[in-house]
Design a binder for these strands. Structure first.
Lengths: 341, 341
DNA sequence: TCCAGCACCGCAATCGATTGCGACGATTTG
DNA sequence: CAAATCGTCGCAATCGATTGCGGTGCTGGA
């Protein structure tokens, strides 16, 4: 168990620990004579010295760690986002502490407490639901908090999001262009801004045309596969004429809808077209491949990390929120549909 | 910025900081009078006291943090595993520090250094490739290291794995039962134990029967979609008679193979059957749904976390390695194939 | 009555790195 | 030539919690 401390290095190099500290710090390296600095470097190397980030964190009041909270690690959408965050942190000596809430309210506040106790320097939250304002603002009193993906309007917390309203409009526009006149949405949870945005954008574009929008009598509790299936089943059971197109608020729910349709013998895309959201890698491989809305997750991760870092360095700033543009990716789940006479 | 420390609580409760420390520690709570303990609790509550895990970590020499290294967060296979880890840690006051290597060798040692510097109490590594022994053993000199999913035979590092040899045999058995007599594997990286195991199990079962196993002239560098596509394309171009079944070493590669086949106009499962590995949720939704080998990822995560924790508590132990059984999940990608006359 | 034993709690050192302050010699400036 | 400046580096306090070592007062048994 090599317990090499700063003092050991100092002894070996024949200097005071404080000098070693300065020599090894890239910021303050210039405060130490070049010759003694290399002597110290050599000593540290020989002893296999490895700094103690815990001690450093205590003294400095900064741990070099960023908390990142995601709702669901099983949703591949978050992988590029997390990569964006980590790639931005790398090289700055920072590291991401990733935690999952599983979209569970109680878990969020536990996770926050945990991160706060560990004195992370900032927190990026991608799992916000309305109602979370209180705990988040409480956290914000201690360290910078940045929302990503999901906004909390009116909370005053900076947010980097996708323009989901625009994404919803894109989906609607696409369906309109292909001749749909009776459509429905499988809505994600209403207490999540991104789903609200998708729904609103979709509706507003549809309402500009002469289209019937069937509202299912329920909303997904979690934006996952099983919920997509359940909602689609309800829609099928609702008795009304079936819509010719479905806008699922994310890809996982679209998969579920696909499953429900298949089990009822309804064909996609022949009978019903489907649009998903997120451009999860798998959408290209389903039967049929799913038309979806692509979001720049990696860039969003980078930007969220960037604003978090600058918040750390420059103290509290006016909330600079930002919204990134989505793109529609057409695939067979809509392209294969044809208007019947 | 509420900077409430132990001392503040002590002052308010009219006791010494050490008493507060003991009162708030579930382990040592019994060392302090019940009455003063509640007084302290009240004071802490009123001040909104939140322990400083950094200071505690420095003094105790334990941070209550476990490093977990995964190769690829975009692979949904790791989600249940990570949940297994976290659920086991929860309640014990521990937390997982998740890091991704992206199957990049240089990144692994950087990540390890980072975790070691942050003084995590143990590390769970699911990204091991042969050649990583050195850095891992170096880490092991400082804290417990547990391998999961991927073993490093002969390294002496405890490993919780799936029985991949058995998984490979299951895949082979399934294909044999359906009448295949000419098959091929899309192999994952050879320096990863789990892929070697799958390959060996598959081969050994096949060799017990009278079956031709076509070996592609290459191996995947990364077990991802693009590599699966590339390997399948090479196989198609190889000129020999096409195998009637493909065993892809994981689901992502199976997706890639599917894509390659489709682009060449070869039908799955009519012309070629496919077996994947991992039972990634999406395998049920591809065209066709993919037969695959299911692994108990959640349980594996729990067990890995459990051995890590007991290694922390009881010091170094004899390496107790363990192997969990896989299950074959038959789907249309093989069930839909029929022997031609 | 005396002392051992116990319950409870305070004192002060400690974990390892960082940093404001100041010392010292060497160099430059007026 | 004296004073100011600069480059280096040491000293010691500090971050906040933990814990070994007692000290105090009280109970119970001999």
């Amino acid at each position: 168990m090599a317990k090499v401390t700063l003092r050991d290095v100092a002894d070996r190099a024949g200097v005071h620990p404080s000098t070693v500290s300065r020599a090894l710090d890239p910021q303050k390296g210039s405060l130490v004579n070049e010759e003694t600095r290399t002597r110290i470097r050599v000593a540290a190397e020989e002893l296999g010295y490895q700094g103690n980030a815990v001690a450093s964190g205590l003294r400095r009041g900064r741990t070099g760690t960023l908390g990142v909270i995601v709702p669901d690690l099983g949703n591949p959408f978050f992988a590029p986002l997390l990569r964006g965050v980590e790639n931005h942190l790398e090289g700055r000596g920072l590291m991401a502490l990733i935690a999952e809430t599983q979209d569970d309210n109680g878990r969020l506040s536990r996770v926050l407490d945990n991160l706060l106790a560990r004195r992370v320097d900032a927190i990026i939250v991608t799992s916000a639901r309305s109602g979370d304002e209180r705990v988040l603002r409480r956290s914000q009193q201690q360290i910078p908090v940045v929302l990503a993906v999901r906004d909390l309007p009116g909370s005053g917390i900076p947010a980097i999001t996708h323009d989901d309203e625009r994404g919803g409009r894109l989906a609607a526009q696409h369906l309109l262009e292909h001749g749909h006149r009776r459509v429905a949405q499988l809505r994600g949870p209403r207490d999540v801004s991104s789903f609200r945005g998708r729904g609103a954008g979709f509706l507003s574009r549809m309402n500009e045309s002469d289209v019937i929008v069937v509202e299912p009598d329920d909303t997904a509790t979690y934006p996952r596969l099983a919920e997509g299936r359940r909602l689609m089943e309800r829609l099928l059971a609702q008795g009304d004429a079936l819509p010719t197109a479905i806008f699922a608020h994310n890809d996982l729910m679209a998969f579920g809808a696909l499953e429900a349709l298949a089990s009822q013998g309804v064909s996609c895309p022949r009978d019903v077209a489907i649009v998903g959201y997120n451009d999860t890698p798998m959408t290209a491989f389903t039967a049929p491949p799913i038309t979806t809305v692509r979001l720049p997750g990696y860039e969003l991760g980078r930007m969220a990390a960037d604003t978090a870092v600058s918040l750390i360095e420059n103290g509290e700033q006016p909330a600079t929120s930002l919204s990134l543009p989505p793109v529609l990716v057409p695939r067979a789940s809509t392209l294969g549909w044809q208007r019947r006479p």
